[in-house]
Nucleic acid binder design. Structure first.
Length: 175
DNA sequence: AGACTAACGTAATCAATGT
DNA sequence: ACATTGATTACGTTAGTCT
């Protein structure tokens, strides 16, 4: 399978018998990491414009850029905590608060018919694999990263209603 | 085998949109 | 005002890469 649509290399899916549920892991090149680190130093919270510019510049999907920044912020926080584990005397050690300057991604509109497709898929499987998500993306025309977010939000807001419990567990007891 | 880290999970929250 | 819901965050976990 190709694996060469970008300058980044993807893992060669070691022929796992169980179908992979995650997307193949991206391996960043040295120069890609360089650019990411440089931009991170300028702004650890890049907006959609910067992320999309980076995505084009590095030939990496924007969603992967976004995840890289999420992971990198965490690495930085952990690291700075180790450095200042007991040397917190100078005052607050700059909690790296998020002053979100740049604009977010514009809200994606999902039509009722698209929502129906997603709902049906959700009932079949609340944790769709990358293949399933891409299939849904193809069916609906919604980008796969947006579908992933849709499922995350859906799971959080519609918790499983006791799969093995009684069907009518709506009434929370009379008062 | 262990370190590193991309991918992915939840929970809370921000924010746009519709009522 | 308020409900709904997409987007973003911090933080924890899973799993592929590399030494």
């Amino acid at each position: 399978m190709d694996s060469s649509s970008s300058s980044g290399t993807y893992s060669t899916s070691r022929g796992r018998l169980s179908r992979p549920s995650r997307r193949r892991r991206l391996v960043l090149s040295l120069s890609q990491k360089d650019t990411l680190q440089a931009l991170f130093q300028q702004n650890p919270y890049p907006g959609i414009t910067t992320r999309e510019w980076l995505a084009r510049e590095l030939d990496i999907p924007e969603s992967r850029i976004q995840v890289w920044f999420q992971n990198q912020r965490r690495r930085r926080l952990k690291q700075s905590r180790l450095l200042s584990e007991n040397a917190f005397k100078g005052g607050q050690s700059q909690p790296l608060r998020p002053p979100p300057p740049e604009a977010r991604r514009k809200r994606t509109f999902i039509s009722p018919s698209q929502t129906r497709v997603l709902m049906q898929a959700f009932e079949r499987d609340r944790f769709p694999s990358i293949a399933a998500r891409e299939e849904l993306a193809h069916q609906t025309g919604i980008p796969e990263p947006r579908i992933q977010i849709w499922f995350q939000n859906r799971r959080a807001r519609h918790p499983k209603q006791s799969a093995s419990g009684p069907v009518n567990a709506l009434a929370k007891g009379p008062d």
